[in-house]
């Protein structure tokens, strides 16, 4: 963890405490999660209590306080996806990866997350991995998709 990275991001917002949410988002963008040391540094730099920073980081679902895998699989649980079977898709991820929501596989490849609608409702059930959208998912497609990411990682 480089604290210089945190400093750079904090400076980008002139160390304004009102920019706390944006600062945390930028840190997560770079570090893939919010490391404790980074949160402590943010509190110091913005001159605000650590409790406020931790409260923000745990209130907003976009943040992870644990390191995440190389492929973060976001299963959309929006209503449109739900009525088209997103629940079964999520079950399949949990079974195939052997992890629960918010967890990461031991090999550090996959993190499983859920998201409340990504606005691609016509294509449900949708799974977003990084910037890649996977449409009309079902159990078979989940297995195929994970295999292809595993292959990609092996290359």
């Amino acid at each position: 963890m480089e604290l210089e990275m945190v400093d750079r991001i904090v400076d980008r917002y002139d160390a304004r405490s009102s920019a706390l949410l944006a600062i945390l988002q930028d840190i997560q963008q770079e570090a893939n999660y919010l490391p404790q040391a980074a949160l402590r540094q943010v509190a110091r730099r913005l001159d605000i209590p650590l409790t406020r920073v931790v409260r923000m980081a745990t209130f907003y679902a976009a943040f992870s306080l644990k390191p995440r895998g190389r492929f973060v699989c976001n299963v959309c649980l929006g209503t449109a996806c739900h009525v088209r079977g997103a629940g079964r898709v999520l079950d399949q991820f949990q079974r195939t990866l052997g992890i629960g929501v918010g967890e990461t596989t031991d090999d550090g490849l996959f993190t499983l997350q859920t998201v409340n609608c990504v606005g691609a409702c016509a294509l449900g059930p949708v799974v977003v991995v990084g910037e890649q959208y996977h449409r009309e998912m079902n159990n078979r497609k989940v297995d195929r998709m994970l295999k292809s990411y595993r292959k990609q990682a092996g290359e």
Partner: peptide
């Protein structure tokens, strides 16, 4: 400022950082 709420919804609780 030693303690605060963490989490939200039905998982909200009170804790130290």
């Amino acid at each position: 400022d030693a303690i605060s709420f963490v989490g939200r919804g039905h998982e909200r609780r009170l804790a130290t950082p």
